[in-house]
Structures are given as C-alpha cells and as structure tokens.
Simulated assay, not measured.
Amino acid sequence: MSKLDKTIAVMDLHVGSDIADVVELSPLAHVGLPARGGPASISRIVRAKASSRTLVASAVLEEASVTGILVLRASTGKEALASALQTTLNVKLPERLASHSISDKYCVRWMSPDEWLLTCPLDEAFELENKLRAAADGPIAIVNVSGGYSLLTLSGESALKVLKKSTSYDVHPDSFGPGKVVNTVMAKAQVTLRAVGEDRYEIIVRRSFADYLWLWLQRAGKEYGLEAFSLTAS
C-alpha cells in the first residue's frame, strides 16, 4: 500500500468514526431543534384543526441528516459518466433541469450542461466516488463536497406560499413540477431547489448560509404556523 493509499484509509476511518455523531457536523446543531416524530406525527401537525387562538401548522421545515454530496463533471465524457451511473446505481443521467431518484437514498440533479449533483448517505460517499471512477471509461471529474452543504426540506399545504415569499423564481406547479431542479436565489442565498412531490420541496444551500436561510424560512412561514424539525436530533 502506497503512502497516499494509507493516508486515504486513515482519513476514511476517521470520517467513519465521526458519522455516528452527525449532530456535531450540522451547522444548525446549536438551534436545538426537536427530532421529527416520523411522517405520521407530521401529518397530524399539518392536518390539525386550529382553535380560535392557535395557528395551523400547514408548513413543515426539516433539516436533513448530514448528507453525502458528490459533484460530477463531464464536458466531453458525458457518455462515460452516464454509463458509470447506470452501472453503479442503475440511474440515468438527468437531462436539463431534471433529476432522477432511487428511493430516498440517491438522487442525481442536473446543475448545468456539464455538471450534476449526486446525493447519497454520508457513510457511502467515499465508496461511491471510487466506484464511479472505476466504472467510468472516459474523462470525468468527481469532487466530494459533503461537508460544504446543508439539505433542508419544506413541505405542507402552505409550503408553496412560503417559497413564493422567499424566491423570485416561478415555483407555480405548472412550471415547477415534481422532479424539476433549478439553481436560484432564495432570500439572499444561492440554492439548488428541487420539487420532490406535491407540496414538498428540497433546498440545498451552502453550509455557511444554512443558519441565515433557516431563520429566513422560519419567519416567512410564521403566519402559516410553520413547525421546524431536525433529522439529526436524537
């Protein structure tokens, strides 16, 4: 084993030992958010009837667990990247402004004509990166940026209203349907916005802007009784 291989192996072991305590890696750990009680509890919150003094929580904001994120680039080797994704994950390379998902674990998003963003479980990012490199039969570039971004989810019957208050992009369902991905500005932060399904949206934002955007969305959703949760909370 070369010196470089040994260094990578040590780094991989170190990262693996830290994954068990992902709360410390979250840029929002200091907020002290409650843990999500599961889809059933959120459903009860969203559908709860309001009393004369209580707001209905018709929007839910969640911070996802720290996620593995790989930037994929291929200017002249799109076929090689497409083949590598098909071989490794059995997923097609998305076309313009689209995304392809495999369950809730993996999702590939179109970012630009020669760039895509792949999310995966944090503890699989290093291995997946190596598998894609090995499967590619042409020039591609892969960069692991897992520690540099945060993933938020906004859902509920008023989620669209909160989005409209936060971005100038046309998020009407007729032009921003499930699976569509855009790079846009939300408040004053650059984000990657994806329509996951009806009344459910995914926001990927740089780690340094996570706290700012979180506070913005909480204020934007206040009139809808927005509830906030963290998937990293225990």
Rank of each mutant, 00 (worst) to 15 (best):
K165N: 08
T7D: 12
F209L: 09
G77T: 06
T153F: 00
D174W: 00
V171M: 03
L97R: 09
N130D: 15
A48N: 12
L154H: 00
Q190K: 11
L231G: 12
A187Y: 04
L226E: 02
V66R: 02
V31H: 08
R133I: 10
V196T: 12
A210C: 06
F126H: 14
V71M: 13
L163F: 00
Y212H: 05
H30S: 10
R47A: 12
D114T: 03
T232R: 07
E124K: 04
P27H: 06
V162A: 01
L85D: 12
T192Q: 11
I19P: 14
L122F: 04
G148H: 09
E95T: 13
S175H: 10
A20M: 11
E124H: 04
A84E: 10
D104V: 08
S175L: 08
V60M: 06
I19V: 14
T184N: 06
K161Y: 02
D21M: 09
S2N: 13
K165M: 07
L160G: 05
V171A: 03
E198W: 00
D137Q: 14
P113I: 03
V91K: 01
N144I: 03
V182G: 09
S208K: 06
Y212P: 07
L160Y: 00
Q218V: 01
S146K: 03
R109S: 13
S99R: 00
L117N: 08
S146I: 02
N130R: 09
E157R: 01
T76R: 10
F229D: 06
K188P: 15
R44K: 10
V181F: 02
S112D: 12
V205D: 06
L152K: 00
